[in-house]
């Protein structure tokens, strides 16, 4: 059974993470992060919040596991296939105008979304002049993503997604299967750089024609969303694109007037001049 964590305890835990480890979860949506912390306690067999605090203060490994556990890492290739179809039809043709295309995937988790984008670019003939920066807060995710290895048993679903996204090739051309895993082909991956970047504390690091940040902002509260959207705005070239998750919206953001809407359902926006 999930333990209830009092608000005071919750703030204490958040403070330890911030002061001792430099990870600031203050602006995360409380309903979900509190639940995840208490699930972590169950998983670690920690009976009380005091035990959790004690472990966190004294045991860095407990912290590493906690970060891995409380961030939501679920992802898929070509998740929301119709979003990818819109990218193919409406966004990539515009990106084609740039001699060198720069893309940022923020909150890329284990890379599935990034590999999907590389496939779209390849099929549009743009991959060779594209550079993809893919970042996440969670080092374990980044390590997995960099390996290019995915579980084989997901490939059937991903193939369906790929086809629904308008993909016309044989999907299995993009990977080699080895035992229970697949390895995404090097030719796709060599255009991608994975590295750590925390959207809460780290800054603008380049200028992009497309920023993809999907299913990350839902875990943040309004005010953190506002500051991260500002970061994206400042990271985009004029007329650069921003793609968000299907359930996320620019509607309630302070900065919404600085963006125009490219596709309402698929949550694709464009920075104004």
């Amino acid at each position: 059974m999930i333990q209830d964590i009092s608000n005071a305890d919750f703030l204490d835990i958040i403070n330890i993470l911030k002061l001792q480890y430099g990870y600031d979860f203050t602006g995360y949506a409380h309903a979900s992060i509190r639940r995840r912390i208490s699930r972590f306690m169950t998983y670690m067999r920690l009976a009380t919040v005091f035990d959790l605090k004690h472990r966190l203060v004294n045991d860095e490994e407990c912290f590493d596991r906690m970060v891995q556990y409380i961030t939501v890492n679920v992802t898929e290739m070509f998740r929301d296939p119709h979003f990818y179809r819109t990218m193919r039809e409406q966004v990539l043709p515009k990106l084609a105008a740039y001699p060198n295309i720069k893309i940022w995937h923020a909150g890329c988790s284990t890379g599935e979304e990034v590999f999907s984008m590389a496939i779209l670019l390849e099929e549009a003939g743009l991959l060779n002049r594209s550079r993809i920066y893919a970042t996440d807060l969670n080092p374990v995710n980044l390590e997995k993503a960099s390996s290019g290895i995915l579980p084989l048993n997901n490939m059937r679903d991903y193939t369906q997604n790929y086809i629904q996204s308008g993909g016309l090739n044989d999907f299995s051309n993009y990977y080699v299967a080895r035992y229970d895993n697949v390895l995404i082909k090097k030719e796709l991956r060599k255009h991608i750089t994975f590295f750590q970047h925390n959207l809460v504390t780290d800054k603008v690091f380049n200028e992009f024609h497309l920023v993809c940040c999907r299913n990350v902002l839902i875990y943040f509260n309004r005010s953190l969303q506002n500051s991260v959207l500002k970061l994206f705005h400042d990271s985009l070239a004029a007329r650069g694109y921003l793609a968000m998750g299907i359930k996320e919206t620019m509607k309630f953001a302070d900065i919404h007037e600085q963006f125009e809407t490219v596709h309402v359902q698929h949550k694709i926006y464009r920075r104004k001049e």
């Binding site: 949506a29 409380h30 309903a31 979900s32 995840r36 939501v72 679920v74 299913n215 839902i218 875990y219 509260n221 309004r222 998750g245 359930k247």
Partner: peptide
């Protein structure tokens, strides 16, 4: 609640969608 997401309500009485396990 939309399919495939958990639907939560936050203290400000706003919805939050959660795509976790």
């Amino acid at each position: 609640a939309p399919q495939n997401y958990h639907l939560l309500v936050e203290a400000e009485r706003t919805f939050m969608l959660d795509y976790s396990e």
